[in-house]
Design a protein around this nucleic acid. Structure first.
Length: 552
DNA sequence: AGCTCGTTGGTACA
DNA sequence: TGTACCAACGAGCT
């Protein structure tokens, strides 16, 4: 004989069956300011803190271009595992623990809900398409089973849906209009909860296969050497330590100006490096916001958005909002805010860029740091993204996006795609004449080339006069520096002066096409422009025309 | 239709 | 270190 749903209701009310809740962690790997966790804990007798290891995300992929899974490089997987270990430890301090399960997340969760007779399922609201799909499945299932779902917005400061609604159903497309719409968060003047001092005990897990947080080896990876690993350690504890360290220098916080940061600083990075902790929710963006606000209130003067530290958090909010409100945000096709541009499909140029073989030391050093550390300075990201797309190689921004998405420990679906749209002049930013020089930009910050020497040791002994353009060094100098260009270090894949001019011309024509067709550019239109541009490139081509003739 | 403004360019010149 | 010039974009507002 089975027990009906109504019978269960009565049993719960009379407390014959303890009230069992699940808090499921996706991002939000923290105890502080975690509304889903607090709500799940409230009024429950048994709390099951769950994390599901999705093989799709975590299983080794031997075909990938770098160690890791299909979707994530090993540095980010390690960062995630460290964050889970820390979360588990922090839960244990309150008499709870993290229950790790493996499998397709919705299947695993359905089973848990059934096996543990769960009444409430709580998880943080997530705007990423991958989690939206999962969360929708869970909501449908729960609705059919009389299970309450609580899914608060706590990964971002503002609710993207609110902002979009305020703007008449479409996301604002400029930073300033976003800031105006967003205003101050409701809780800006009243402290948010950051202390959690009690959790209900974990219930009997029955037949569900629970494991500890796996190690890298247990997931099937061979561990990399220490100098190939990111120096940044995952977890809430490390996030809060880093936060306190950053904000302890009040003057630095108050006077922060992003564009003035030094992209070549690597012993002590010019920014907080809190991005990976925000990405995984080891650090609450709302708590971070509150901390910065407090420093500003106690300072005589401080910088303002967009360049201030608070302004950086608002960029994150802006991009989350646009990404949430724009269908096909992560591609050029069928993306209403993305310019249609006939990018080249050139795997050789792409792999030269990806594998740090462009022959431009500034670019290659950044790509080495990206691969080893999983983090590079914001402006360094700009340089390599511009170089790959509109600046020099004219390779599709989606290709570069994929590489960043894999290698960055802070790679975040909304922010990564937004920045590639930005840097490729596909959306948000359109001044395609402004191209970062792969030679002079880095030199400005680091004339001696210390950054290059560190990440490209083959160029360690190259005199500073040539280190940004080693192909110009006389052979005798190359011999003395033990680095022959073309043998020990590659020749440049393009001549920057020529390549960048050509890119400008291509962008000009693509913009003209978008204007003429009012953004409705078909595949055929794009292909035909692509062919025309290739034709123009040929020396002595009859169809070669300059901008001036087109304007006239 | 016209206006202002825009997270962070490069180069030449004072 | 500051400024003019390059060439001239779109979003959002009036």
């Amino acid at each position: 004989m089975t027990t009906s749903f109504q019978d269960y209701q009565e049993l719960y009310q009379t407390k014959l069956i303890p009230l069992r809740h699940i808090v499921e962690f996706e991002k939000g790997l923290r105890l502080h300011d975690n509304p889903a966790l607090e709500y799940a804990a409230k009024g429950s007798d048994r709390l099951f803190p769950v994390f599901v290891i999705d093989p799709h995300y975590m299983e080794p992929d031997p075909n990938a271009f770098s160690p890791g899974s299909k979707r994530a490089g090993l540095n980010r997987i390690r960062f995630l595992l460290e964050s889970l270990v820390d979360l588990d430890l922090n839960l244990q301090k309150l008499g709870s623990r993290l229950l790790v399960l493996k499998g397709e997340p919705s299947e695993v969760l359905f089973r848990c809900l059934k096996e543990w007779s769960i009444k409430k399922l709580c998880f943080e609201f997530d705007t990423d398409p991958y989690y939206q799909a999962l969360d929708d499945k869970m909501k449908k299932y729960a609705a059919g089973g009389g299970i309450e779902i609580f899914s608060p917005v706590s990964h971002t400061i503002f609710n993207p849906a609110d902002i979009i609604q305020k703007n008449g159903g479409r996301p604002p497309l400029s930073y300033q209009s976003f800031v105006k719409l967003a205003g101050e968060p409701l809780w800006a003047s009243s402290p948010i909860s950051t202390e959690l001092n009690w959790l209900p005990p974990v219930g009997n897990v029955g037949n569900c296969p629970i494991s500890e947080v796996p190690s890298i080896n247990e997931l099937g990876y061979e561990d990399t050497q220490e100098d190939e690993r990111t120096p940044f350690k995952g977890g809430e504890s490390e996030a809060l330590r880093r936060l306190r360290e950053s904000i302890s220098n009040k003057e630095w916080v108050a006077n922060f100006e992003k564009p003035k940061g030094d992209p070549s600083a690597f012993i002590k990075p010019a920014t907080t490096v809190l991005s990976p902790y925000l990405k995984f929710g080891c650090l609450s963006s709302r708590y971070f916001y509150q901390c910065i606000l407090e420093v500003q209130r106690n300072s005589k003067r401080h910088t303002s958005p967009p360049v201030s530290l608070l302004g950086q958090l608002l960029w994150r909010e802006f991009f989350y909002t646009v990404a949430f409100g724009t269908p096909n945000f992560d591609q050029m096709k069928d993306n209403r805010i993305c310019k249609q541009i006939p990018w080249k499909d050139d795997d050789e140029l792409l792999s030269a860029w990806r594998d740090a073989r462009t022959g431009f030391p500034w670019i290659d050093a950044i790509m080495v740091q990206l691969r080893k550390w999983g983090w590079v300075h914001h402006l360094a990201r700009h340089c390599v993204a511009c170089f790959l797309t509109r600046g020099d190689l004219f390779v599709h921004w989606e290709k570069g996006r994929d590489v960043f998405e894999r290698l960055l420990i802070d790679s975040d679906w909304a922010i990564n795609n937004a920045n590639w749209l930005w840097l490729s002049c596909s959306s948000f930013f359109y001044q395609y004449n402004r191209i970062y020089s792969p030679i002079s930009f880095g030199k400005k910050y680091d004339p001696n080339g210390n950054y290059i020497r560190h990440f490209l040791p083959i160029l360690r002994d190259m005199p500073k006069e040539y280190i940004y353009e080693p192909w110009t060094a006389p052979l005798s100098i190359q011999v003395k520096a033990k680095c022959i260009i073309g043998k020990d270090y590659p020749n440049p894949v393009v001549a920057h002066d020529i390549a960048s001019k050509e890119c400008r011309q291509r962008l000009y024509e693509a913009y003209e096409l978008n204007k003429r067709l009012n953004g409705k550019v078909s595949d055929e239109d794009l292909k035909s422009l692509g062919r025309k541009l290739e034709e123009d490139k040929r020396p002595g081509s009859k169809s070669k025309r300059l901008k001036q003739t087109l304007i006239g």
